[in-house]
Design a protein around this nucleic acid. Sequence first.
DNA 1: CATGAATGAGACTTCATTCAT
DNA 2: CATGAATGAAGTCTCATTCAT
Lengths: 199, 199, 199, 199
Amino acid sequence: MKKTTKGADSKNKILEAAIDLFAEKGYRGTKISDIVKAAGLTQAAFYLYFSSKESIFQEILERFYMRLEEHLQAAVMPSAIEPGEFSMRIRRNIESILTIFQEHPKATRIFLTEERSIDEVEILIHQTIASNLKQHQSTGLIRNDLSPHMMANGMIGLFIQVTLKELLEKQRSPKDVANEITEVLLYGLAQYRPEGTGR
Amino acid sequence: MKKTTKGADSKNKILEAAIDLFAEKGYRGTKISDIVKAAGLTQAAFYLYFSSKESIFQEILERFYMRLEEHLQAAVMPSAIEPGEFSMRIRRNIESILTIFQEHPKATRIFLTEERSIDEVEILIHQTIASNLKQHQSTGLIRNDLSPHMMANGMIGLFIQVTLKELLEKQRSPKDVANEITEVLLYGLAQYRPEGTGR
Amino acid sequence: MKKTTKGADSKNKILEAAIDLFAEKGYRGTKISDIVKAAGLTQAAFYLYFSSKESIFQEILERFYMRLEEHLQAAVMPSAIEPGEFSMRIRRNIESILTIFQEHPKATRIFLTEERSIDEVEILIHQTIASNLKQHQSTGLIRNDLSPHMMANGMIGLFIQVTLKELLEKQRSPKDVANEITEVLLYGLAQYRPEGTGR
Amino acid sequence: MKKTTKGADSKNKILEAAIDLFAEKGYRGTKISDIVKAAGLTQAAFYLYFSSKESIFQEILERFYMRLEEHLQAAVMPSAIEPGEFSMRIRRNIESILTIFQEHPKATRIFLTEERSIDEVEILIHQTIASNLKQHQSTGLIRNDLSPHMMANGMIGLFIQVTLKELLEKQRSPKDVANEITEVLLYGLAQYRPEGTGR
DNA sequence: CATGAATGAGACTTCATTCAT
DNA sequence: CATGAATGAAGTCTCATTCAT
């Protein structure tokens, strides 16, 4: 074992234990004593690597965001896009995100579940989605009889729930889940669409 | 004023204070001392009416469920239903639920937000919705290329998020919100539906 | 025992225990657990009456300052004063302060010893003394070949030390100590004064 | 550079850092981790040179005492002394001590401020001064209507305070400060001395 | 019916000190 | 000679809960 490895090892052990516990019991339900116990260390060791309970929580989220952002670059939707490609791109973007989620299921659960985390980022995500929808309302790909904000909220809610239940709990493949999410989001549950009215 | 009024009054004061605080700060973030302070009583009084913090929380939820159930009787969807009526019935059912939610915004927030609460009931709701969907897959009203469970989860997530943001936060009318939810759920976000494939 | 007495009793017990311990071991050397042990209570009880360790410390000092101020009204020295009366007034003022000190020996020790306490007040006292001296330099009662600030500092230091050692430790009477302090302060240690030079 | 230089260097760095910090924040307010950080070393290195926090503190004081003692040899007052010379000798002795203090302001502050330090030595100093005063009460140079112990305490207090404020804080010259201390100590604050009584 | 007073158990955090390398 | 890593013991503060009145 290299010299420089040991400290980082311990820090990682603590981080992983913390991720597990935050995911399972939430921030408040998780005690530092539990974390270090799971990591095989003492309480004092915790403060060698993190300045507080809050700070390890933030570090976990930041690491998660970083990974997320890397993959989110690809998710940018060009403004000029053909109808035929549209659904495919969405499908791919969703799949790409779900793949990261699947690789970090615990962190994902924290991210999607813990109020302390989402609130800040959620607004950003919401705005991004809403303006995207608004744009494609003008390109004619998205129906324009509904409010973009409401649609964005609907998307987010649907996406969160399906991620938690289908991807993380049932452990279905990102591809499958992405397909179904895309289908439902774009075309809804109904077999047939009423003609004419309102679109 | 009846003899028994005073005690019931105090109990109600405590209950209402607790609903406010649980909604605002969550279960763990709410202290008994905060509740009784808001209710104008002492901590000891709390234990005259409730055996523990957990028990008042459950009582709040149960009261909420009761009100919910009364209105949910109407929401049962008959198995034979005409396509034209289908969307309207859903719309009405959703509106009826949102109306109760709107009348009890704090309790609704607790119910939809607090993990401790949903988990038990969520399964029940999920099953109800899923079997409903499954049934209408066979009547041909619901598309059958998607898993009922997944659709149910999507519905629930979308519904929760839109309720929280549009109904409770933006205070939009149950009718409007119900309309939009129904539209999105049934027909999706896309302006046009691809022909043929898979449905 | 009256109903309203018990709480105040406990608070006082804690206060007195704290005064004893702060005087003996200093602020940092005193643990809350020691204080409540001495008061016959548990740690949690401490926080019924004080919001923190720092706050009980401040409360002790404030109570002490209040008593001090009451008696310090009398200590104001009129500007026009006869030489014969001068030393007597100083003597009386010092005696009056020493009497309060004697009545609250523990609090006095905290006040005079603990850095956290004096620093704020010391500046005020210093200014008061210095301007008093300056004034009497012009009335001719105080020698004017020395800096008022330096004399003020000397007075304060002498006063503190003699209070601690002679009044509090040796338990000499305020009257005796006041006499000696006044004598030394005004006329110094030397038997004879050199004629002429420098005054 | 000698072989033994490196270790001694580190030890000195630690010592100096410790002196700075003890002077600034006091014994209890200073952490080993602060000391070694300021010295550019690790905590473990501290224990190569000192067995405990207490021990470095004592070592600092002892070094200070040693320097003090060297210069204090000169301060011994011969028993037979002429009145004219008396004040000058005191002046010189005080100046000589203040000069050492000025050369080691941090250590001086620790010595004069920290309770843990003074108590042991103070008694010695007190005794020396008191017996000196007693002696000169019999030679007639010191007034004999006051207790030598009380006078000694007064001297010490005055001396400490003036050293801290005038010498160390205002950075006045040892000579000036020594002059003023001597003047005040010997002849007091009053412009005129009352005739006759008691001396 | 209600309160004032108190507590047990535990949470987070700090710091001097040690040990293998 | 020096370090990185770890720890034991303690300290401050919080909170749900109890009990005598």
